[in-house]
Design a protein around this nucleic acid. Structure first.
Lengths: 251, 251
DNA sequence: ATTTTTCATTTGTCTGACATTTAAAAGTCT
DNA sequence: AGACTTTTAAATGTCAGACAAATGAAAAAT
């Protein structure tokens, strides 16, 4: 963002000024004009460049900060800096967005379930090939935890997520792990919430064990089969729950 | 958000007040205390509830608006409303985030390519099963476009994206389409940018035709094979480009 | 009854001020 | 000279008050 580009915004546009300014800066970041860790002009300088008040500039910067595109630092030599969008930053946003998409859009259980397992099955062959002892250890540890009788439903669900997370991370592909974060961490709890009343923990632990065994044996085919059975079992559970609810509502 | 919960924030916290307020409202949305299309208290009322100035409240609201969690409307009976996060809203955010993640994190070509095709192969069987004539028509039309000699590289790339997009959408699962948006629309251009100098359009069109034929014939296996060949071809192209660059740099 | 006008409400923007944080510069002591 | 302390300047964070602009609803006029 050089000093020259004073007028990038249209005061007569219907869009709010802070939106326009945020978009202009965002474009500059995406377009490579502003590189990672580069310091943006100070708020006062941005006021002059865009010919707006400081409030407006600040609202624009807050919009960008909310998307992790910039970070701000107070004090001398502080300011707003282009943020390196890390996978760690993007994970929770992805999970939140996925959670809200599911809860606000009446996505059917079958649709969510299908997407979640289709994506996970895409990772399984890679995980069977590359998983480290660490990933295996995590999967085994979660299986042990899931076998303990006193475990609450919440803890079982959390362990379930951790198991599948380890499976996905075993593929050793950060892009896949990021993409799957939404599926595993948003959809799995949703499914658990629906099916936990009906499920058999023994059945799930058995399937998890078969998956872990296959991953340990570098056996992609068996892992895929086990995942398909887990899919089928999950759908069966849902049908049972729905049937039970229908029977209850009728009585 | 009832009137009672006046103090949800800690003025002594190190976090900015606007961040805390945004988080409190966000939690209320995620937690279901605020439902879709519900009106938030006016800015003035929020000032009183949180005991902060209007600027601070507004910065908090702008943070939420940047994440599409709320929308604002001016005028009488206006205000801030909980926004239904639609897949349409989430798509571009997903693409932007994926693009920035790739450009800022030195993800290797192989890693991105692997993730992109693994996810796409997860969709292909479903697409072979459910694709409508519309999806097929789009794929065929893009193949025709890609065969035209005068096409610029940019247009070829855009058509490539549209082809794969139609393939993914054929699975008729909005969750999958959303998850894949980042992969297809962010990674495909990246790959094209690297490989376009070396690629043979005829080869790609031939592979696309095989994929479309298989999808039309509901033949998931053949579609998968063709996608694997496209993966291999893409990686070959990359190797050629890298070798050419190495040779050029040496001379 | 219909149209027009007025009006109150709410967000958008501007101005100016002060508080707080922070690193660098200046000063001080050994 | 070097190490420590103090001061200072720059920047963001917060506050207060004002006006502009949009907008729906009520009141008034036709």
């Amino acid at each position: 963002m050089k000093n020259g580009d004073v007028v990038k915004i249209d005061p007569n546009s219907s869009a709010d000024l802070s939106v326009q300014i945020a978009q202009a800066i965002k474009d500059a970041i995406i377009g490579g004009e502003l590189i990672v860790d580069e310091r943006l002009p100070s708020e006062t300088e941005l006021c002059e460049q865009f010919k707006v008040s400081r409030s407006t500039v600040r609202e624009a910067l807050k919009r960008l900060a909310a998307q992790s595109l910039i970070r701000t630092q107070r004090g001398a030599s502080g300011g707003a800096f282009v943020n390196r969008l890390s996978f760690e930053d993007a994970y929770p946003q992805q999970v939140t967005t996925s959670t809200l998409l599911l809860s606000m859009n009446a996505v059917s259980f079958d649709t969510a379930c299908e997407a979640r397992f289709a994506l996970e099955r895409a990772c399984a062959p890679l995980s069977a090939q590359r998983r480290t002892p660490d990933h295996l250890a995590t999967m085994r540890a979660e299986i042990v935890r899931q076998s303990q009788p006193g475990l609450t439903d919440e803890a079982f669900c959390a362990s379930d997520v951790a198991f599948h997370r380890a499976l996905v991370d075993g593929a050793d592909n950060p892009v896949l792990s990021y993409q799957l974060a939404g599926a595993v961490e948003a959809m799995q709890p949703l499914m658990n919430m629906i099916t936990f009343t009906a499920r058999s923990r023994e059945e799930i632990v058995a399937l998890h064990t078969r998956i872990a065994d296959a991953i340990e044996a570098n056996d992609a085919t068996t892992a895929d089969t086990a995942l398909q059975e887990l899919t089928a079992y999950t759908l069966t559970l849902k049908d049972n729950v729905m049937a039970a609810r229908a029977a209850r509502d009728k009585s």
